[in-house]
Amino acid sequence: MGVEQKLGNMGVVTTRLEQLVNWSRTNAMWPMLFGLACCAIEMMAAQAANYDMSRFGMELMRASPRQSDLMIVAGRVSRKMGPVLRRLYDQMPYPKWVIAMGDCASCGGVFNNYAIFQGVDEIVPVDVYVAGCPPRPEGLIHGVLTLHDKVNHEKLSKWA
């Protein structure tokens, strides 16, 4: 993140607290291992060797919500799963973010019926929506980078 360049020979960095905190948040953002449906397979592909999401500091998928900051809702959310998803979200420590991956999680997708929530934003607040059915791994990575961008622009007044 350019720290080496700023460091020079003096061993001292001057930056704003806001920037420092946002930078550290984006570069060790641990997603929760939360695969629901088809998109989970593409999420796995994004983790695997060809796409390698760990380039963005996200190699650690945590199975426990208590250890994760980012929930990637990968797939359709059924009426039976909705309460479970909300409980998992409530168990995550602040600060936390949500990516709705794929059309089903974003808006219900092709399944406009009794069994599926028409968008996970009915249950939890969503930060980034990734379109596609399922999105390509590049799409997910773009979504993650968009989220990083969002976090980098957060103001001190929001979290302090």
Binding site: A37, S78, A115
Partner: peptide, 29 residues
């Protein structure tokens, strides 16, 4: 049932060509 999608009900509301799109997403492997 945590991934119950209502595909069978949804297919009844679409015609034969449209309903095929739903079949992909059943067994997504």
């Amino acid at each position: 049932g945590f991934l119950h999608t209502g595909v069978e009900k949804n297919m009844e509301a679409k015609n034969y060509q449209q309903a095929e799109v739903m079949t992909d997403r059943l067994d997504y492997l």
